[in-house]
């Protein structure tokens, strides 16, 4: 009987060495260890074995059965590993090919910059306002303390409609509309398109974008303006920015300033961009003129404020080093698809 077992084991070893896939392995398992297989038969026949031999044969039978089971599982692992190895060696792609389009489009660069700046302002408690493109003389000029004979009102600068309305020439037109609805203290910005009579070329546009800002409250002063601008511009340029105020004249502010920032290219050391002075003129700003506060229904005896105007297109052109401002309104996705 033991011989029979040994012989069967030898036969098993021979066959398992020839097994090449899972299917053969499973058949082998059934063949030797299945309910109708020889091992079952042999172990069933154990009762006929002489009692003194029964223990020895039983142990031998179990030993062989375990050996077979282990060999089958080991072979199974080998086969799995071989299958994985084969996949690894067969599956290969040229990963440098572009076989599918990305499903990501792109915002227009003016939107990218405008939203980024809006977010900075809203994080600091500013509310975003809007106003019409087509404005009355009142909101664009008169309420902003721009007198009737001021050069800004010339036909060569301002688009006039036949009915006397105009295209707003600056986002400052949003100021008075905003004040009419607000109670101080408040902090607002008004981004948007503005228009000037200008034949478009690489650096001039008839339609462009500005962002107006205004803070009104009790005892708002010049030092607040400097601090706010320094903080905001450092956020916008994502680095510490130095600001410098110079006297500047704009009818809707008094005092009015030109705000310079330290040149971002040379850090203020002087380069061709800043004409070797280390500063770049960035934006007009100033303390809101008492007449403008009055136009907005705010008592200038009680409240004061500051306002500023940022040229968005200029920031866009500076950030992306865009060579021609006409790209902005071209509708050309060769241009606007680049700002993902």
């Amino acid at each position: 009987m033991i011989d029979q077992l040994n012989q069967l084991y030898e036969e098993f070893k021979e066959k398992i060495a020839a097994v090449e896939d899972m299917q053969q392995l499973d058949s082998l398992k059934t063949l030797f260890l299945g309910k109708k297989g020889p091992m079952t038969d042999i172990l069933k026949g154990l009762k006929d074995v002489a009692p003194d031999m029964r223990k020895e044969v039983g142990m031998k039978g179990n030993e062989i059965k375990q050996g077979m089971t282990a060999a089958i599982e080991a072979r199974r692992d080998e086969l799995k590993q071989a299958a994985i190895n084969e996949k690894i060696s067969n599956e290969w792609l040229d990963v440098t090919l572009n076989e599918a389009d990305s499903n990501v489009g792109g915002l227009h660069p003016v939107s990218v910059v405008q939203y980024e700046i809006e977010d900075i302002f809203t994080s600091m408690g500013f509310t975003v306002l809007d106003g019409p493109h087509i404005e009355t003389d009142y909101y664009n000029f008169e309420a902003l303390n721009i007198p009737a004979d001021h050069p800004a009102r010339d036909m060569q600068d301002t688009f006039y409609f036949e009915n006397g309305a105009i295209l707003r020439t600056h986002t400052s037109a949003i100021q008075v509309r905003g004040m009419e609805k607000a109670t101080p203290p408040f902090k607002v910005i008004g981004p948007g398109k503005v228009f000037r009579v200008e034949r478009p070329d690489a650096t001039h546009e008839a339609a462009f974008h500005q962002l107006e800002g205004m803070v009104v409250g009790e005892d708002i002063n010049v030092s607040h303006l400097i601090n706010t601008m320094k903080t905001l511009l450092s956020e916008i340029f994502k680095r510490d920015v130095d600001v410098r105020l110079r006297p500047g004249f704009f009818p809707f502010v008094e005092p009015g300033f030109e705000l310079d920032i330290s040149c971002q290219l040379c850090n203020g050391k002087g380069c061709s961009v800043c004409k070797n002075v280390g500063w770049i003129e960035l934006m007009p700003c100033g303390m809101v003129h008492p007449n403008v506060l009055k136009s907005g229904g705010i008592d200038p005896e009680k409240y004061s404020g500051f306002a500023f105007g940022l040229g968005l297109d200029r920031l866009v052109m500076m950030r992306y080093k865009i060579e021609d401002i006409r790209h902005l309104h071209s509708g050309d996705i060769r241009f606007s698809g680049k700002f993902k």
Binding site: D101, S102, N103, V104, G105, G106, L107, H108, V110, S111, H133, K193, A207, L328, H329, S330, G331, D332, I333, S336, G337, K340
Partner: peptide, 16 residues
């Protein structure tokens, strides 16, 4: 944002 980041559209600006 839906149009540009999810749906693959590109934004353009045109004159008014």
């Amino acid at each position: 944002n839906q149009l540009t980041s999810g749906l693959g559209f590109t934004e353009v600006m045109t004159y008014p």
